[in-house]
Nucleic acid binder design. Structure first.
Lengths: 386, 386
DNA sequence: GGATTTTACGAAGGAGCCCTCTGTAAAGAT
DNA sequence: ATCTTTACAGAGGGCTCCTTCGTAAAATCC
């Protein structure tokens, strides 16, 4: 039984667990002294030294110069080598492909974008994805070999193996085995996920949903979608379709954004990407036609949201996506409509992240995969970095 | 940091983890030989003996006579002392209070019921609860002191602390601090949960949802409700209202069962508890009025269900509650309606358990609480049973 | 019925990991 | 220059696990 063997074991198992505890103490924090690590892990100082020395020998931890100014003998300081490896997060959208490269702590080093269109052929879209990542690597002074893991997010229903099952926005996208196709482009492991779910992950890790265990994330933009955070983790659903209430005809999510795009207040020469902004601006100034359009949009958004809220009773609903810049207009409307039907009204917040949130979530997912691989709680010992 | 300290630690920590592994190997299984335990845990035979001896000394494990008939020297056999302690699970319903008493492995030793009504005063209902448990204890030859934990399920929204927030069915039930009130009656720890969630837990542990990680449980009976299993665990929601889509007016769940109760095919002198059965029977024989009633009921049930299914994309939907005896009639109707709207149709099954499922789930919850207390993975050592 | 085979028990010896304790080293404070 | 504070480094010891070996108790074979 793997579940039994992963519990106890050898004496080396204890060292393994203590090594993980030390790494967790060192991750993402300022460089720590041995005493500080010992306090956090509960280990004795000599044992801490032993473990840290071993991690230094493996290459996961490096010593940094001691900090001056303190009382007593200066303590040696150590930090996790987050720059020992890197990950890429990609957002393969309808009109834009965004990429971000980060270190093992998720610190973003570079971001780039490539412009595409809904009719860009599959091969070209994949090539643009590769260029976006390559641009990040160049900007960060890294090579392909420094990349240990790549995560990608895209619109549509993505199954467990990373195949696009359904895609509302991108031409010829359904049926593409993204994990395989991207795997040909990159020499490291590749994972693929629905974009809204990665955006939700980003909000949970570094956005509006930090520390929240149960949240609904709304992607309100030219497309309308949703994702769920349950028990602190992103929920996929059995077929990867969790949160896709927008595909139910009764929610009208497929056409909800048209109220904003096709509003008469939008000048005729405005490109579709900017249309909604005009409507929101006009609504802010009280233009009745624009206000009505925004209200009808909020009606549609609230209907699908209420189904998720009633199902899950979340702590928080995050309004994300491009329209989250109009949260000042949308949130009050959404709140009113939800309060009418909700048993217990969840908190309602606008997104704290910008347009890169899917790429950021992809970075987080890639880091999580590496964490599992190198620092998982399972049996085995800690391997040296490549 | 508790999360760090719970990872590694002392040498005693290793022994603790290995003890847990041994206990898990012994739990719920036939008595095992030392060699068998060693194989399952991955420990060496001498270490296994050491750990088992220690557990025997503590009182958690007992030796049983060796089995005859094998080749070679007969091996000593050991088993977990599931009968060292006991739990009670209670279902405090509108018309009936059911109780079950089980050992630490969840094996039910006795079941009883008490009849109440929707207007039974709170104190009397609590007294009936106590009588139901006392009856179980007597039937199993146990005393109050043998009870280590009690879990109760009841209708309505129950908050994290075990207070009834909203109750549709039971008079004066809202506002009752059930954990505190039951705590006065029993000398052990008491936990309270929504009844549908406990029924779902029972289906997951020993019913139709075994091994399923994401499922929706429908309670279809005189009351209509639902509960969710997400990631293998029952989902509460932030305010304990997860799955209460039935409280949304648009679902019509509050009145859905009336189609069945008030159907003209039901003879006038039939008590309300049996009315639905007549309607289902008539529908089976093709009586048009009854068929129409069942179809309207299925319509309402499907609407709320579709919201949950679209939100969660579960692997399975379980039809439980009193009407699950009419699963042969209801499931096809429900399937047709869900297939119309569902992106990916989940599997659909009738409940595998009877009317005791809430009490069974409560037993499971009580056992889980004790497991956490005695055999949790957290720091500390294994304490002797009381 | 005795020898053989099979399986399990029990004790001894050894290695790894962590702890406590003690003395030494390096900085600022007096 | 000395004292105080903080950290480093090593020694010694205890606990837990592993491997190895000889012994014990059953069924099987001749």
């Amino acid at each position: 039984m793997s579940t039994l063997a992963s519990l106890g074991g050898d004496l080396s198992r204890l060292r393994h667990l203590n090594s993980l505890a030390v790494i967790r103490a060192l991750r993402g924090a300022e460089p720590l002294t041995l005493t500080a690590v010992a306090e956090q892990t509960g280990l004795s100082r000599p044992s801490t030294k032993d473990v840290v020395d071993q991690l230094v020998a493996l290459g996961w931890v490096v010593e940094v110069p001691p900090s001056a100014g303190g009382l007593g003998r200066p303590a040696r300081r150590y930090r996790f080598r987050a720059d020992g490896g890197h990950v890429a997060g990609v957002d393969i959208g309808v009109h834009t492909v965004r990429a971000a490269v980060a270190d093992l702590d998720g610190n973003v080093l570079a971001e780039t974008r490539q412009t595409v269109s809904r009719d860009t052929p599959v091969d070209d879209r994949l090539a643009a994805t590769f260029r976006a990542v390559a641009g990040c690597l160049a900007a960060a002074g890294l090579g392909q070999d420094d990349l240990w893991s790549v995560s990608a997010g895209t619109t549509g229903v993505v199954d467990r193996e990373g195949r696009v099952q359904i895609s509302a926005g991108i031409r010829d996208w359904a049926g593409v085995d993204l994990t395989a196709r991207l795997g040909e482009l990159f020499s490291c492991t590749v994972h693929v996920e629905n974009d809204a779910r990665l955006a939700a992950l980003a909000e949970r890790e570094r956005g509006a949903a930090q520390g929240v265990n149960d949240a609904v994330f709304l992607h309100a933009g030219r497309r309308t979608g949703a994702a769920l955070i349950i028990g602190g983790a992103v929920h996929r659903g059995f077929g990867g379709a969790a949160g896709e209430v927008g595909l139910l005809p009764v929610t009208h999510w497929a056409t909800a954004a048209d109220y904003l795009h096709d509003c008469p207040v939008v000048p005729a020469d405005v490109p579709k990407g900017d249309a909604a902004r005009h409507t929101f601006d006009a609504a802010r100034e009280g233009h009745p036609v624009a206000v009505a359009a925004v209200e009808r949009y909020a009606d549609d958004l609230a209907l699908g949201t209420s189904a998720m809220v009633m199902t899950l009773d979340p702590e928080l609903v995050v309004l994300g996506g491009g329209f989250s810049r109009a949260a000042d207009v949308l949130l009050p409307l959404l709140r009113t409509r939800l309060e009418e039907v909700c048993l217990r009204m969840p908190e309602l917040r606008g997104s704290a992240l910008g347009e890169e949130c899917v790429a950021l979530g992809a970075v987080g997912r890639a880091v999580a995969h590496l964490d599992q691989e190198f620092f998982g709680t399972g049996p085995g010992s800690i391997a040296p970095p490549r």
